[in-house]
Nucleic acid binder design. Structure first.
Lengths: 235, 235
DNA sequence: CGTGTGATTGACGCCTGTCAACGTCTGTGG
DNA sequence: CCACAGACGTTGACAGGCGTCAATCACACG
């Protein structure tokens, strides 16, 4: 494992400034507690943070890089549940429910992750009911998104779902100054979001290209026609 | 709307004794508060408790009957998310996240529902951190189940999913003394759990019958071969 | 007895998964 | 510097699962 302890532990203030970060509801005291208790590690691309089915004894906050969370189906195929980027937290569901991890967390862009032990999380929840409620809100939002995803995947065609996946990636990672999506996935990863075969994803991407919705430069996708994509996605 | 206020409000103790009920973590004081603040109504089969997209200002605890929770897809097709029976609570996700309801709740077997206002819920959460954590655990379990469902629906065939749906119904509602499933759904509702066309659900049920997995007596389904069903479901 | 809802069955065809072959690119080791 | 392996991307052929449409049946209800 290419994981290594960092000498310099990034300050929590760093992440708190990210939009929508959970920890902005902590008091100075709580933040100090958090900074004191947490550890921080560097993970290279490809590393697994935790495996589905394993016991986790804390949760992680992404300080830099990108992590994908996926479940493994009974024939080994990945189903990507969501991505986590700077300011996002992962693994808290398992900590709270006391279950085994229900997905695997794998780094897809070199990452630094802060680790906060379970006890610290429960401490914070007990000390600070506003924080507790905010964390709960976060869980509820995820649940709402999961339910929407269930409906989409059950009712929409692969074509619609792929377009929608592009929109989700756009909302999460945004575009650069040239309208390139700020995350580069393999075709297989794309198909594992949509829940389809790699070949189908490839064919549909080509269709989108022919229809001038996107440009394809290897793994880099350039958005040409946002309205068109939304129309295909039926949102 | 055939809803009417009940003269006799059922005691919370009644539900608390249900297995896994959330409120068993409340103190006597908290339970008294709950009983004092809550209301209770009777709903006939077919009534809607709340609509997707509406604002809810409290949540419901099912005292009797069955409620189905579903989202409506863009072409009007229902996707059933889950069912709620005695002791289950519904609508708390929207209360906590402060969002609009992300699904519709419709009664499918005459029901009595207790209504607890948002403020009471937040009061309880602030007063009792153990209760708060238990509620959070519940949310997390739902989230875990939703993620599993996403993987299944994305990767399994309709045949496998239908078998799995039967198992979920079995786990939720159980069998009577003759091995009949303790809930009777229309074929359309069954297909709306699985995420398929009604006709497909019908054909597959016939197959299951031919394979001696189940017997079909109208809407009443008799389980003959649990192992066989599990095998089909690939669990 | 007409009406309406739900269940069933058949015909048909398309979407999409699977298999296979081949191209492309990158990194590694000789 | 070249050969090679391995991962990833692309394209074509093909079959079959599953959705859609339509007709018919069963049953309840006013």
């Amino acid at each position: 494992m290419d994981m290594k302890q960092l000498d310099k532990i990034p300050a929590c203030y760093d992440c708190v400034n990210e939009s929508n970060n959970l920890f902005r509801h902590l008091t100075q005291d709580d933040l100090s507690l958090l900074s004191y208790e947490k550890g921080c590690n560097f993970y290279k691309k490809g590393n697994v943070v935790y495996h589905e089915g394993s016991r986790v004894n804390g949760f992680y906050c992404v300080n830099a890089g990108i992590v994908k969370l996926y479940k493994t189906g009974y024939e080994g195929r990945e189903q990507i549940i969501r991505f986590a980027k700077k300011g996002d937290i992962i693994g808290f569901r398992s900590v709270l429910s006391g279950d085994f991890a229900c997905h695997t967390a794998r780094v897809i862009e070199d990452a630094t992750l802060c680790f906060i032990p379970s006890e610290t999380l429960f401490d914070l929840i007990r000390r600070n009911s506003e924080f507790s409620i905010e964390l709960h809100k976060l869980t509820c939002r995820e649940l709402g998104e999961a339910n929407s995803f269930i409906t989409d995947i059950a009712q929409k065609t692969v074509r619609e779902r792929l377009a929608e996946a592009l929109l989700i990636l756009y909302n999460t990672f945004g575009l650069d100054h040239e309208n390139f999506l700020q995350i580069n996935l393999t075709r297989e990863e794309l198909s594992n979001i949509v829940g389809t075969a790699t070949e189908s994803a490839i064919r549909l991407l080509s269709e989108f290209k022919d229809e001038k919705l996107i440009e394809i430069h290897g793994r880099r996708l350039k958005f040409l026609d946002m309205k068109g994509i939304k129309k295909v996605a039926n949102v």
